[in-house]
Every structure is written in structure tokens, then in C-alpha cells.
Design a protein around this nucleic acid. Structure first.
Lengths: 335, 335
DNA sequence: CGGGCATGCGTTACCGGTAACGTAATTATC
DNA sequence: GATAATTACGTTACCGGTAACGCATGCCCG
């Protein structure tokens, strides 16, 4: 019956017998009004069903944006998915809105996403990883908003960072494999021509092998997206080429599970013939016939912390530049 | 050296020796300027590194928003993840930005997300499913923007819908199981107290069994999130209670794989002792030791179509109210 | 008792685009 | 050749909030 009833500050103000500005003050809980006025205004707000217009607020000279941009490599990953879930839930809880994008592990995609984001004048940005194009860096500088780089430990962040050391994750897993008596060890990764954090884990992994007087026997970097298929074919490729390998470290759990599928289908035993380790701590890892040896990433905690650090910055609270989220190597039955 | 160089239409206009409005016209590729002017303006735009301000554009009386809201149940699902990926990629390609949220299968969460979205005056909305609160419906009406309801087939959509019949998916799978000689069939689902599309599949599944002179022997609805764990424990629960079951239909592939893990760990054979079917067509389903019988959902196509339908609406093109995306039952080796 | 100050408002300007409208110059039409 | 239509702009107003500022009133205190 009634048209969309666009109730704005003006309408509330008229109904409550005050000025627009006073209504604005009440709603933002700023000072400069009596308790009596507040009650009258809030009553009208409830009665007329006022819907705030963040667009106008963010647009005005005050630049009071509550928009936060978040960019992850992809949506089809449980790890990034649950991280996003946590970031989103916490930012929402704290009164912010998120604008989420994905860049498929391509820095130039990230840049074009950021350019698009910038046109919405966001209050802050959360990025995954530390590899950015020069254009991205320039844009970030021009935007002059708080930035949180997550996922990858970054002791010299653009602004702040919340993450853990992928290098150490790899290093630790190599030492675990050595302790378990593995000697001819291979690595299977994906997205060969991109800068992934998996690459950093591989480096830490190699380093530990070297430090142990050993070396990485073989390495297979697929060009596909990481996933069950990639693990399956990666295992096939590297083990056909190098049948003497006695252990494989996969870029993530999905790939490890895919790899195990190939290995067991070949009649080889895990970990007897081939030890297998993954990374990420996904659910499926723990219900395999043999529990997968992996590194568990506390994505919920990471996302929550990232959100809180960003909001801390926005509110001007003192926040640490670098926050380390502890990960945990969980020895399963596959190494 | 130079400060953030806030180049706006004003600056471009001055540099090109024209008015703000003319620059706006050139950039929007509207009519009303000479080829000569366009070249001068575009040159200045490139030189000064103009960044558009979508906030201002969306705010003004023109209401030229390029913002689209998308809300999915959760980010930690490959199916929704790849659907999101497709929606996002296509909307971006078509010149729109997405504001993504998740509601954890709770209609009231969806409503509060929508309320938050509405404050950004979006141009359109994409929702998953057909179950919305009264508040959501009112809000959607007040917003007067195009809506696409995806996932669940909805022959009477609020505006438009792009999806497939979960009922038919379930129906088809039941018939497949019957053809394979299964008779004592159970269903294992999750999120017992929420309205999920899995529930609709279960209904179609039951209906087919009834139509075949049979009936659903047992049903287990867990209260957890769907996932590998849920499938694992769901199988344990239902098979302990009802050991005579000869087949299980799981709410999705993750649960089916989890269920298979429990079944094989118990020394039972699949499909000999227990037939297993899932739903969704996730990667992992096809690399199991026995390829999982499942229904494949073309999420990329679904997402692309949803984006195109929405943009069609926004541009005023004629678009179908209801688009059906065909799914495919893929017989594996587990039934 | 008068000056200083806090309180509780209203007024004005402004953010950066775009719709609507006005207008001069050019071109088309009869 | 006079009038109408079109082209290529410029001008103005406006979207809905918020910062900055102004201005009464009341109160405290020396």
C-alpha cells in the first residue's frame, strides 16, 4: 500500500521535531543531545523503520566507510573458505561489511580487483600473501587505509600481518619424515608458474633435508589447480619417473589424499612403501583409512585475529604489526 | 612525492578544457560529445590516472549502482565455492562488483545480511534457495531491484530463478538404486533443524521409493554441518541402529566419502554389502578406490547463467523467469 | 553579578558523480 | 532562405549523510 517508505534522517527528524543533524548524532551515538531527545528519536526510528544509507555516509566529506575489502586466491578451498568465514563473521560482528574477491593466485588479478575495490572507497583491506604487483603497492599507498596481509608470515608487512611461517611448516615436516626413517623424498606441488605459499613450504622442506645432510630427491610441480586430481596425477608422474622414492610431501591435504588414492590403487602400501604427508588439516585427512600426517592450520583463529587487527587499526587502537598464529604438525599414520 | 593525486572528474575536465559533465559523458560512453573531445578527455584520464568513484555514482540521484549482493549458505563447500567463483568472475567481467555474504543456512542470518546489504543500495541480489523470512521478503520488495534465486528450482520465483530440481535429483537416485537391486535403503543428512535443499532431495528420494512399491527404511539427520565427519558418524549411527540396510544415500559427496570410510573400516564391502551414493559431483568422488555414484552439478554453468540473467534484468533485456540447469546422475561403482 | 564555559541543539557547506535542462552553433528540411 | 531538428556542449540541482561552526540557554565561580 505505502510506497517503499524511504525513511531518511529528514523524515525521522520531522517526526521527532528535531533537525536532521540531531538524528544523525543520536544514531551514531555521538554527543550533543539530551536523553529525552534520544528517546524521541529512537522511537521514531523504530516506528518508521529507518534504514541507514551507508553509501551516503561513506561518500560524504567524513569518509565514514565501514567497508572492508578481502581478496583470497580462490573460493574452492576449504582452508580459504573457513578463513573467509571467520573474517566475514567477525567483521560483521564488529559492524563492518566485506567486499570479497578472488584472484586465482595471479597478482595482476589481485591488482584489478583492488582497483575495482578502491572505487568504493573502503576503510581497510585484507590480502592473502605477500606477493603483490608494483601497481598494487602504489594503489595501496594512495588509498591510505589500514592493510592486513594474512596467511604468509611477513615480518616486514606493508602495514600489519597475521600469519605463520610456511617455510617452518615445510622444515618441520621434513624433519618429521627424516625421524621416521625416510630418505628418498619427493615434493608434489601445483600451480607451477605462480607464486604460492606452497612454494615457500617446499623451500623450507628442502632446507631441512639439506640441513640433515640429505636433499630433495625429486620435485614435481604441476600446472593445474591444486586438488584431488592434481595429487592423483602428481603421484603418478613423480613415482613413475622415480620409483625409488620412499616419501612424498604434497602441497596440501587434498593433493595428498589424491596421491594416496593413486598409490594404494597401485598396490603400494602407505607408509610402508611410500610415506605421505599433506598440509592444511582438512577434515577428510583424519578419516582416511590411515590418518594423514599433516599440519593443521587454525583458520578460524587466523580469520578472527585478522578481523580484530584491522578493526583495531581503524579505531586507532594500538595493534601489533605482526601476529604469529601457531600451527601444529599432527603425526598421522602415513609417514 | 605527489600526494595521493585524487584525480576526479573536475581535474580531468580542467586539464582537457571541458566541463565535468562532458568528462562524465565520455567515460560512461554516453552520447553528446565529439570524437575530438573524447580523445582529449581519454588522454587526460590516462595521464592523470583517474580512479572512478563508484560511491558517488551509486549515491547520486541517478542511482547508477554496479553493486550486486550474493549470499550463500557457507564458504566451506566446494559446490558453493565454485558457484561463487563463477558468479563473481562473470559479474566482474560484465562490469559489476559483488558483495558476498554467508548465512549458515539460517534464514534470519540471511535477513540481517540483506539488511546490511540494502544500506549499500545495490543494483541486484542473488540468493541461494527459496526459504526466506517474511522480513527478507518485505525488504526485497522495498528494495525494488532484480533478484535471482539460484540453486533450488523455483517455478514461482520472487523475480527470476536459475536452478535445478533437488526433488528430481533424489527421485532419480532412488530409481537407480532400485534398478541395482537395493531394497533396504537409508538416508543420511545433516543440519537436521534447518531448511536445506538436501531435505528436498530426501523427499524426492522417498517419493521414488514409495512409487516403486518400497519405502525409505531408515533416515538419520545429524545436527552437525555436512562434511566428512558427519558422513562418518552418520554411517556409524544408522548402520548400528539398522544393520540390515543395503544402501545409503548421503546428503552430499563429502558425507558419502566419510560414510564409505566408516563402512570399509568396518570390513564391509561397497557396494556388495552396502551401496553408497552421494550428491554434488565433487572431485574427490571420482578418485575413490571405487568411483562414487553421484549427481554432478554444473556449478560453473549455473553461476555464469545466474550472473547473466541478473545483468540481463539490469540492462532491461528480456530474460527467462526460470532457467533450468541440467544435472547428471553419474553411475559410479558404489551402488 | 558578570564573564567563562559546557550543553543542546540548528544551519550551512560539502563529498563526486549524474539527470534534467538550457543554449549556441551547425545541419537538415521544405 | 526561414524554420526545425540535431549536435555538442555548459549549468544547475540534487542524492543523504556528516564536519564545522554558530548560537542561545543555563550554570558555576570568583
Amino acid at each position: 500500500m505505502t510506497k517503499p517508505s524511504k525513511a531518511g534522517l529528514e523524515q525521522i527528524a520531522r517526526a521527532a521535531g528535531v533537525s536532521k543533524m540531531t538524528v544523525s548524532r543520536v544514531l551514531r551515538d555521538a554527543s550533543g543531545f539530551s536523553e529525552d531527545t534520544r528517546a524521541r528519536v529512537l522511537a521514531e526510528v523504530a516506528r518508521l523503520g529507518y534504514l541507514p544509507n551507508r553509501l551516503a555516509a561513506a561518500f560524504g566529506p567524513g569518509k565514514t566507510s565501514t567497508l572492508v575489502g578481502v581478496c583470497v586466491p580462490r573460493f574452492t578451498s576449504q582452508l580459504f573458505g573457513s578463513t573467509l568465514e571467520a573474517i566475514n563473521a567477525n567483521l560483521t560482528r564488529l559492524g563492518y561489511q566485506t567486499m570479497i574477491g578472488s584472484h586465482d593466485q595471479r597478482p595482476d588479478e589481485e591488482e584489478s580487483w583492488l582497483r575495482s575495490l578502491a572505487s568504493w572507497q573502503p576503510a581497510g583491506v585484507i590480502l592473502v600473501g605477500r606477493h603483490h604487483t608494483p601497481g598494487t603497492l602504489t594503489l595501496l599507498q594512495d588509498m591510505t587505509v589500514p592493510i592486513v596481509e594474512i596467511w604468509d608470515l611477513n615480518t616486514q608487512p606493508l602495514d600489519t600481518s597475521v600469519g605463520f611461517s610456511h617455510f617452518d611448516n615445510g622444515y618441520e615436516m621434513a624433519r618429521h619424515m627424516i625421524r621416521r626413517g625416510k630418505r628418498r623424498i619427493g615434493y608434489v606441488g601445483a600451480l607451477a608458474n605462480r607464486q604460492t605459499t606452497g612454494r615457500t613450504r617446499a623451500e623450507g622442506f628442502s632446507a631441512a633435508l639439506r640441513d640433515g645432510g640429505n636433499h630433495l630427491t625429486d620435485l614435481e610441480m604441476l600446472h593445474d589447480q591444486p586438488g584431488f586430481y592434481a595429487g592423483f596425477y602428481g603421484a603418478e608422474t613423480i613415482l613413475s619417473r622415480n620409483p625409488k622414492l620412499d616419501a612424498l610431501y604434497f602441497q596440501d591435504d587434498e593433493m595428498a589424499i589424491g596421491g594416496m588414492a593413486w598409490i594404494t590403487r597401485r598396490g603400494l602400501s602407505v607408509p610402508g612403501d611410500i610415506g605421505v604427508a599433506g598440509w592444511g588439516g582438512m577434515e577428510a585427512a583424519s578419516i582416511q583409512s590411515r590418518r594423514l600426517t599433516t599440519t593443521v592450520i587454525p583458520t578460524t583463529r587466523l580469520g578472527k585475529t585478522a578481523a580484530e587487527v584491522l578493526v583495531g587499526r581503524l579505531r586507532g587502537d594500538p595493534v601489533p604489526d605482526v601476529t604469529v598464529i601457531p600451527t601444529r604438525l599432527v603425526p598421522g599414520e602415513t609417514v
